[in-house]
Amino acid sequence: LKKVVALYDYMPMNANDLQLRKGDEYFILEESNLPWWRARDKNGQEGYIPSNYVTEAE
């Protein structure tokens, strides 16, 4: 899975979204639905995130 790091905080707009915290790492599960990607956080929560809020992890 592709790993990304959040560049900004993101508060979910609806139940399908995943909250982002700046500096945290996330795994990308699906990239087909631009600009929204399906992601999983370190706690196993899954949801959609804005792809322009993250960058690929080193």
Rank of each mutant, 00 (worst) to 15 (best):
L1S: 07
L1M: 11
K2H: 06
K3L: 10
K3V: 12
K3R: 13
V4R: 03
V4D: 00
V4I: 04
V4G: 02
V5K: 08
V5R: 07
A6C: 04
A6S: 05
A6E: 01
A6P: 00
A6W: 01
A6H: 01
L7H: 04
L7F: 03
L7R: 05
L7T: 05
L7I: 12
L7S: 04
Y8I: 08
Y8M: 12
Y8F: 13
Y10W: 15
Y10D: 01
M11C: 12
M11A: 13
M11N: 12
M11I: 15
P12Y: 02
P12W: 02
P12K: 05
P12R: 04
M13C: 11
N14R: 11
N14D: 10
N14M: 09
N14F: 11
N14Y: 12
N14Q: 10
A15S: 12
A15G: 10
A15W: 10
A15K: 13
A15E: 13
A15M: 11
N16H: 13
N16Y: 12
D17M: 15
D17Q: 15
D17S: 10
L18G: 00
L18N: 00
L18V: 03
Q19P: 14
Q19Y: 08
Q19M: 12
L20S: 00
R21M: 10
K22V: 08
K22Q: 11
K22L: 06
K22E: 07
K22G: 04
G23N: 05
G23S: 03
G23R: 02
G23L: 03
D24K: 05
D24Q: 13
D24F: 09
D24E: 15
E25W: 14
Y26S: 00
Y26F: 05
Y26E: 00
Y26H: 00
F27Y: 14
F27K: 04
F27P: 00
F27A: 06
F27M: 09
F27N: 04
F27W: 15
I28N: 00
L29S: 03
L29E: 03
L29G: 02
E30F: 09
E30N: 08
E30Q: 08
E30H: 08
E31T: 11
E31R: 08
E31I: 11
E31H: 11
S32G: 13
S32E: 08
S32Y: 08
S32F: 09
S32N: 12
N33R: 11
N33S: 14
N33L: 12
N33H: 12
N33G: 11
L34A: 15
L34C: 13
L34G: 15
L34T: 15
L34H: 15
P35M: 15
P35S: 15
P35V: 15
P35F: 15
P35D: 15
W36I: 08
W36N: 07
W36R: 10
W36F: 14
W36H: 08
W36K: 10
W37Y: 13
W37N: 04
W37C: 08
W37T: 08
R38G: 03
R38F: 15
R38V: 09
R38S: 06
R38Q: 06
A39Y: 01
A39D: 02
A39I: 06
A39K: 00
A39F: 02
R40V: 11
R40Q: 08
D41P: 00
D41H: 03
D41W: 01
D41I: 00
D41E: 03
K42H: 11
K42P: 06
K42L: 09
K42F: 07
N43D: 13
N43G: 08
N43R: 09
N43Q: 10
G44F: 05
G44P: 00
Q45D: 11
Q45C: 12
Q45N: 15
Q45I: 12
Q45L: 14
Q45A: 13
Q45P: 02
E46I: 10
E46A: 04
E46Q: 05
G47M: 01
G47P: 00
Y48E: 05
Y48P: 02
I49D: 00
I49Q: 00
I49A: 02
I49V: 08
P50N: 12
P50L: 10
P50E: 03
P50Y: 09
P50W: 09
S51L: 06
S51E: 05
S51A: 14
S51G: 07
S51K: 14
S51N: 06
S51R: 13
S51C: 10
S51F: 14
N52A: 15
N52S: 15
N52G: 12
N52L: 09
N52P: 05
Y53C: 09
Y53H: 08
Y53W: 07
Y53V: 04
Y53P: 00
V54P: 00
V54F: 05
V54G: 00
V54K: 00
V54N: 01
V54Y: 02
T55E: 11
T55W: 09
T55L: 09
T55A: 12
E56N: 13
E56T: 13
E56A: 14
A57E: 09
A57Q: 11
A57Y: 13
A57V: 15
E58M: 13
E58V: 15
E58D: 13
E58F: 14
E58A: 14
